[in-house]
Computed example of a mutant assay.
Amino acid sequence: MKYVILVGDGMADYPLDELDGRTPLQVADKPNMDQLAEKGACGLLRTVPEGMEAGSDVANLSIMGYNPRRYYTGRGPLEAASIGVELSPEDAAFRCNLINADERIVDFNADHIETDDAAELIDTLNTHLETPGRFYPGVSYRNLFVITGAGYTDVRVEPPHDIVGEPLDHHLPGGSPEADHIRELMLGSREILESHRVNHERIARGKRPANMIWLWGQGTRPSMEPFAEKYGLKGATITAVDLIKGLGVYAGLKNIHVPGATGYLDTDYRAKGRYAAAALEEYDFLFVHVEAPDEAGHAGDVEEKIKAIENIDHFVLGRILDAMTEYDCRISVLPDHPTPVEVKTHVPDPVPCILAGDGIEPDAVKSYDEFSVREGSLGLEEGHRLIEVMKTL
């Protein structure tokens, strides 16, 4: 038996007035998801354990079959693994966003800064910002900072996408030598970045400058059982997002590179579908992740969110379902967490989940959305049990 999990990041939502009290999932043209719901079993999955933050790192770790209460150490180490940065046990790895700010956080991704521009800015920080730590370039605004010292894991900094529009000085860390140093780095980056050629050129092109860094999501290197030993399956991930790739590295999954996959609204959905379909021949387990609905949710753009859901359905899920006919196969489709367009950030609510394929008994659900699945036979499950349920149902 082969197993596929397709995650539409942030796909779930709340009813919206502009959609006549419906959600984007209810409005979207998604025949493949609806057909799977009708042919399979549905329910809700609690991907974020009570009391933990509704981050994509926590939620996807859960969906991948690892209990976050046991295995989660922070977002930064996952990004480190993705870009090949080895961490010692004493290292704290921070996610380093390039942001746009004045007295407030204006934009948590600096107008989705291009990777080449970001790399040049990160290199300049290593040269001119005084710290015993080191910055590493990643993808676009998602970069990395690593520093040695146990006290750095206790520094509290909120994710920048949760505080857009908020005053900077309300959210800067402080209260310990380590927190003070992180605050000094964040504030000290402004003078260096604002005068940089890259940002002058961005302004000339009508783009927001990346005029500050925001350090957050730090943690130490996690210790995870290899997926193959835990579940007896040879697996792979397909994603453009560093933290998902990092989870794959620590779990011993193969990260399959897809040209044109950007982790944004312009991602190449067709390429993701093609690569996922081809990977079924070699792998017993596929974790396919598409970031676009989450980006639309953060932007508060309902039309883009509907479009992203439809593209996932038509070009990713449709291609996977065609390939599945060649194998004994089961598939689950779900978000990792909701990212409601009115809230513009993640919430920890349980997510709608489909489980379909060979040997799965259909229930009474006829369409896939946040409300229909509540009548399904799966009930409410803990997220880290999904693979176990897929294998034993």
Rank of each mutant, 00 (worst) to 15 (best):
A292I: 02
E375Y: 13
M11D: 04
L98W: 04
P77Y: 05
G51F: 14
T47N: 10
E388A: 12
D107A: 13
Y71T: 09
P167D: 08
K254Y: 05
T262R: 09
D284C: 07
I163C: 10
E90G: 06
H112Y: 09
S223P: 02
L187K: 11
V58F: 09
V343A: 13
T153R: 11
N126T: 11
T127D: 15
P338A: 15
D284Q: 15
L87S: 09
K30D: 02
A292H: 04
K307E: 09
A323M: 04
A59W: 08
L334W: 02
M324S: 08
V258D: 05
M390A: 05
Q35R: 13
A80Y: 00
F108E: 07
D57A: 15
A299C: 13
G379D: 04
V241S: 07
M224D: 05
L380E: 14
L129I: 13
E53Y: 15
D336M: 07
I331Y: 05
I387W: 07
G260K: 08
R104Q: 07
V155R: 06
H200T: 15
D336G: 03
C353Y: 00
A240N: 03
T131Q: 07
K39R: 09
T339H: 10
P338Q: 06
I192L: 12
F287Q: 06
D169I: 12
V333C: 05
F135A: 09
A210D: 10
F227P: 00
D116N: 15
D301Q: 09
S62Y: 01
S367Y: 07
R70K: 15
D9S: 13
R69N: 14
A308W: 04
V316R: 01
E375K: 06
L78D: 01
M33F: 14
G21P: 02
K2N: 04
F371M: 11
P160L: 14
I360G: 01
D17A: 15
E282V: 01
T148G: 03
S195T: 15
T325L: 05
S140G: 12
S56Y: 09
P160D: 13
D301H: 09
S195Y: 10
K30Y: 01
F285D: 02
H298I: 11
G260F: 08
V164Q: 14
G10L: 08
E342C: 08
E178A: 13
N32M: 03
H314R: 11
K344R: 15
H384W: 15
T262G: 07
E304Y: 01
A179P: 01
E370R: 05
Y71Q: 12
L121Q: 05
I182M: 01
Y141I: 06
V146E: 03
K254W: 03
Y231E: 02
G188Y: 10
D169Q: 12
I387R: 00
C329V: 04
P89C: 09
D328K: 05
I192S: 12
I238S: 00
D57N: 12
A101S: 12
P24Q: 08
R95C: 10
L334N: 02
I5T: 00
K391Y: 02
S332P: 02
R69H: 15
V389L: 14
K245M: 11
V341G: 10
L125F: 07
A279F: 01
L386R: 00
